[in-house]
Design a protein around this nucleic acid. Sequence first.
DNA 1: CCAAAAGTGTTCATGCTACACCCATGA
DNA 2: TCATGGGTGTAGCATGAACACTTTTGG
Lengths: 221, 221
Amino acid sequence: MSYSGHKFLIAVDCVIFGFDGAQLQLLLVKRDVEPEKGAWSLMGGFLKEGEDLDTAAARVLQSSTGLDNIYMDQLRVYGKNNRDSGGRVISSTFFALINSKKKKQQLSDQFEASWFAISELPKLIFDHTKMVSDARERLKEQAAIKPIGFNLLPKKFTLPQLQRLYEALFNNTFDKRNFSKRMLATGALYKQEEKDKSASKKGAYYYKFIPNPVIGDFKFL
Amino acid sequence: MSYSGHKFLIAVDCVIFGFDGAQLQLLLVKRDVEPEKGAWSLMGGFLKEGEDLDTAAARVLQSSTGLDNIYMDQLRVYGKNNRDSGGRVISSTFFALINSKKKKQQLSDQFEASWFAISELPKLIFDHTKMVSDARERLKEQAAIKPIGFNLLPKKFTLPQLQRLYEALFNNTFDKRNFSKRMLATGALYKQEEKDKSASKKGAYYYKFIPNPVIGDFKFL
DNA sequence: CCAAAAGTGTTCATGCTACACCCATGA
DNA sequence: TCATGGGTGTAGCATGAACACTTTTGG
């Protein structure tokens, strides 16, 4: 090591949004260390020697939830000197949106993690509430540009499902004709032959995301 | 301190874009430590004990350029294990866009910092080239939403100046009638009585940014 | 008086919003 | 057969793009 300087603990905190087909949710864990032991918090852990940041995020998520292979985006760093009352910690945050229905039992049983409706969050430790609202803003921004959901719905999903997700996210309702036009216009979805008959008699067509859609580059004027 | 874990050096690197009225530029410094001593790099420094991250960014900028009171946005964290060949360093990056004309002499003399045209950057150390291109993307995104330039042009500026900035940023040319309509439609500018006659006989009206404009919230459908 | 930059309006095309009816099926 | 959710088209409106001439004034 050729540098010198003060060194810091680096936390990796994950803001995991979930969607169960109806409601937008957030995954929280009961904190098991002092200070604030027993309070609700985002799942987090410390970066280890020799570990990449994004690897650490994946590890934290995996160890609290059993979830694997979830792509997380970086949110931002929270670096105020006094943000953690237990000592100086720089927190690097990541976020993702996943399907909260699939693994429900697994979570509650194996780990002390639970889903909360986004509108009824408990008090969180430190600046975690701010992290959540920042993450939610980012999610909305992303959703407005391209269809989100690569990790959040089953591999295949129906337009009504996708619409419910958007409505939960934006806390709003949309006209289904316009919604469908807009989603299909992105060119990022393709229709399957198969239908999902679990929610209606008629059945709704499944769609899949096109792996790497060419989204029209945003431009100015 | 109630936590235990491995600790890391945290670098704060600043991506400073400049605009001189014609060209988009980037501020670089000659690195004065090994490894890669003498190579061009973003200006950076290490986070100090007890220092806020954004305070550190401001300090780094101030000490390399004499520039003070520049608002910088956070870009992202670069945390790959092997990103810095001198040892494990997590880099937290910030970016800003400033007026590069005003302080030209000051820079080159007092500090080993110089402006480079964005299209003719030298090879940079480590992952700094990636940082620059990420920052440029973010700047474009921001510029597409609201008029940028709070720190980059003089407090007052003319529409033609603002347009040259956008043209440099997007590497494109725009119709001045549409440009002016669009900028004024944001409601973030207000016109001064005074004109700038330095660039033409007729003179162009000065504008100022409205401190905290209410930008229409983006919405989906 | 003329060169050089600044300012300004209209038309057209495109995309977004609002809105209502028929379809398919399991119970 | 009917209740439930799924699917589809159009007309009006707003926003963005293209485009050219007049104004001002220092030299």
